[in-house]
């Protein structure tokens, strides 16, 4: 069974590591993986995305509109930008906190992501939309650097990836530097250890 995933966010948010962790976990299970990443100048404050595909008989790493089983969004506006990739019954896991464009101050833009979240709530049925208050989670975890694994943890919990938390934890050991491993593990399991928290942060709207 093929899985098509879109990860999206803003340069510097760590989308590439999240994409690599999923890929490595899938490979451990003997599955084939392909991905396409944004690399280069766009990483400097620009919008970045990964297309990640798991399964047999894949030919190309890129996705067409309407093919993604999951959109894992690191920023609400970027989630909306990539929403056309989502298939009819696909799942969206997104951070609700906006990253203002670096030019916002200059252009006087008042973007704060709230329109984007409102749109997502209107468009995606509640059982398929997982809203994560990334800022709150990071504050509780005491590190600004682990948004990617917090969101990945939420995505794995939805079950859409066909991967278990243990699958990701196993590959984290070899892919994350030892001094950051404990923090990342804690962040990844954030919603497991905060059962109530899962509802607090990843509110399921009905």
């Amino acid at each position: 069974m093929n899985k098509n995933i879109v990860l999206c966010g803003v340069g510097g948010q760590g989308t590439v590591l999240a994409s690599r962790l999923i890929a490595a976990a899938a490979m451990e299970k003997g599955l084939k993986v392909m991905s396409a990443e944004t690399i280069g100048m766009a990483q400097r404050g620009g919008n970045v995305f990964s297309n990640l595909r798991i399964g047999e008989n894949l030919k190309a790493p890129l996705l067409s509109s309407g093919q993604a089983d999951l959109i894992l969004g690191f920023e609400p506006g970027e989630t909306v930008r990539m929403l056309h990739y989502l298939k009819k019954d696909g799942i969206v896991v997104t951070n609700t906190r906006a990253v203002k464009p670096t030019t916002a101050t200059l252009t006087g833009s008042d973007y704060d992501g709230s329109d984007m979240v409102a749109y997502l709530k209107k468009q995606i049925s509640p059982e398929r939309l997982f809203l994560v208050d990334g800022e709150q989670a990071l504050r509780d975890l005491g590190s600004p650097r682990v948004l990617n694994v917090v969101l990945l943890g939420a995505a794995v919990r939805t079950g859409v990836l066909g991967l278990k938390a243990e699958d990701i934890e196993k590959v984290m050991e070899s892919m994350i530097r030892p001094q950051f491993l404990e923090l990342n593990r804690k962040a990844f399991l954030f919603f497991n250890h905060n059962h109530l928290g899962f509802y607090r942060y990843a509110a399921i709207f009905s």
């Binding site: 404050g45 506006g77 909306v80 056309h84 203002k100 464009p101 749109y119 468009q123």
Partner: peptide, 19 residues
């Protein structure tokens, strides 16, 4: 046919800038 996504709000433009 692709799923109908209604009227999509425009996400912010993010041009690359000097760090």
């Amino acid at each position: 046919a692709l799923p109908d996504r209604g009227e999509i709000p425009a996400p912010p433009v993010r041009p690359p800038v000097l760090c």
